[in-house]
Design a binder for these strands. Structure first.
Length: 507
RNA sequence: UCACCUGUAGCUCAGUCGGUUAGAGCAACGGACUGUUAAUCCGUGGGCCGCUGGUUCAAGUCCAGCCAGGUGAGCCA
């Protein structure tokens, strides 16, 4: 058996394939079947003349997502997606679907697709996202393993909230209350003191009732932790890591990124250009419009975006009016009229989207202008900041109030901690949060008290500062947010096979 | 938890000022067409207008409550 991904080795040869029919088109005496086999997509032509009457009649019976087995000749054809097509000589049905396949080749709403997630995964776009996800996971392991990091698994059951801020999923552990982990970091620090450099790669749970395109209740996180690393080295590692993964994925997932219509020019600059590194103070100045980037301030850029949007909206409104005048003509042929009405629906949807975008801009402006020094960045602020750059940006030196207790304070300014957030461009927001960790026992005890955290839970963690305490740093990367950005998928729910989010436990 | 938006055929959506028998495209089914790319063209079937109550001579349309979903805020990766 041959897979579609291997076709270029079999040009002109007769091969056997197995797969599912995703679409069929017919003409008299000729049937076009689009086949998928998990490795790719291929148009198969069943011509009554060459394949024979029996195969042709079988082909005519086929319904969407029926499974088949076929033989045929591989022919180069530049018009096709993969560059090849199959001229079928033999065709056998493995399973003919009696019921209609729910997901058609037309548009569907999110709720319907999510209810049919188990079938939706077969669709081309979902297939491509999952393949890229796989290559990202592989590239992540590759990067760390090549450098000698040790992969470790942190426990999923935990006794207490690590940071005390987020809501955890409560469960039960032999009649005792327990929680599902929200981070493996503290355990990662312990392992780093044993192994030098480690990384975790596992599930993380947050019981936040957020319903946004950036949140999941269950997601996968990569958390490296390195002994003898300060925050500078940490930032260097983060940047090299992201560059390396993006580079590898671009090489391995060319076809998938093409299906996803990903602009790879931006990804190329991610690999080649240095990421902007700005302090929290500088980020605030940018938000306030005091500090221009590439000759333009945030306020000016937003005003420009607003004008461009308004122009587009006007254009669409004119188009809608023109078409409405056309269908007012009662002599118009019915089919022509329907066609125009469909086009109108599309235009109205576009208009709705653009108007929604436009309506957010005043919020962005307000949020940016009125941002209070010392606060954490909200979604609107992140959007404004990343809009200023085309590369991921690293924001470092944060006010201690908005960050976790374990972050190392800045020797030069006691109000700041050595944390770093990486914000992905193109509106994708925070993908990495990291920091140098506090190494001083007394300072750490003080911080735990300040954050009102239960001291007894941290006794083993404090041991790490009692015995051979060393400077160390680490970070956490949200896998699904990373996949969202690389694949240019607006909603995080499409980047994991079966998302668990507020209001969604099935399928 | 709060704010805004949505719920009409299997799917995506129209439905004007409350007024006759509820509309289209796609999908399904039947037919035409020998190279289609979400093919096209002709035809057929398909409805608890989210649920409950209210206003009215009359409700898909107006009002209230509930349910479900979407987007954002908070929180975060």
């Amino acid at each position: 058996m041959i897979y579609i991904s291997e076709l270029k080795e079999y040009e002109g040869k007769e091969i056997d394939l197995k797969g599912w029919v995703i679409n069929s088109r017919s003409s008299k005496g000729i049937e076009f079947l689009v086949l998928r086999d998990g490795t790719g997509f291929l148009q198969c032509v069943v011509d009554e003349q060459t394949a024979g009457q029996e195969a042709y009649e079988t082909a005519c019976k086929l319904t969407q997502e029926s499974s088949v087995e076929m033989s045929g000749k591989v022919v180069k054809d530049d018009r096709q997606i993969g560059g090849y097509e199959l001229q079928v000589t033999k065709l056998k049905i493995l399973h003919l679907n009696n019921d209609n396949y729910p997901i058609s080749n037309k548009s569907h709403g999110v709720e319907f697709l999510m209810n049919n997630r188990h079938l939706w995964l077969r669709s081309k776009r979902q297939w491509a996202i999952m393949r890229v996800r796989n290559n990202i996971i592989y590239a992540i392991h590759n990067f760390f393993q090549k450098q000698g990091f040790v992969q470790m698994d942190a426990p999923i059951f935990t006794g207490n909230a690590v940071e005390g801020t987020t809501t955890l999923f409560a469960t039960e552990f032999y009649d005792r209350p327990a929680y599902l982990t929200q981070s493996g970091q503290l355990y990662g620090e312990a392992m780093a003191m044993a192994m030098g450099r480690i990384y975790t790669f596992g599930p993380t749970f947050r019981a936040e009732k957020s319903k946004t395109r950036r949140h999941l209740s269950e997601f996968w996180m990569i958390e490296p932790e390195m002994a003898f690393f300060d925050n500078e080295m940490n930032m260097d590692l983060i940047e090299n890591f992201i560059k390396s993964v993006v580079d590898e994925v671009m090489q391995k997932s060319k076809y998938e990124l093409e299906i996803l219509e990903r602009n790879t020019e931006i990804l190329k600059t991610v690999v080649s250009d240095r990421f902007p590194r700005i302090t929290y103070d500088e980020a605030v100045d940018i938000l306030h419009g005091k500090k221009p980037v590439n000759g333009i301030t945030s306020i000016e850029l937003l005003e420009k975006d607003k004008m461009e949007l308004e122009e587009k909206i006007n254009q669409i409104k004119i188009e809608i009016e023109e078409r409405e005048n056309l269908i007012a003509d009662t002599n118009l042929k019915q089919s022509k009229r329907n066609f125009i009405i469909n086009k109108l629906d599309v235009l109205k949807n576009d208009l709705k989207d653009l108007e929604e975008k436009l309506s957010h801009i005043p919020e962005y402006l307000k949020s940016a202008k009125e941002f209070r020094y010392g606060d954490d960045f909200g979604g609107a602020d992140e959007t404004v900041l990343t809009r200023m750059f085309s590369l991921p940006i690293m924001v470092f030196n944060w006010p201690k109030e908005v960050k976790a207790f374990y972050m190392k304070r800045d020797e030069k300014n006691d109000n700041l901690v050595k944390g770093v957030d990486v914000l992905a461009p193109e509106g994708f927001g925070e993908i990495v949060g990291g920091s140098q960790r506090e190494t001083d026992l007394d300072v750490l005890i003080q911080r735990i008290k300040e954050h009102n955290l239960p001291m007894e839970v941290f006794s083993w963690y404090l041991d790490l500062r009692k015995f051979g305490s060393v400077p160390h740093s680490g970070f956490g990367l949200g896998l699904e947010r990373f996949v969202s950005w690389i694949t240019n998928t607006k909603h995080i729910r499409e980047t994991i096979p079966f998302p668990r989010m507020y209001g969604r436990l099935n399928p």
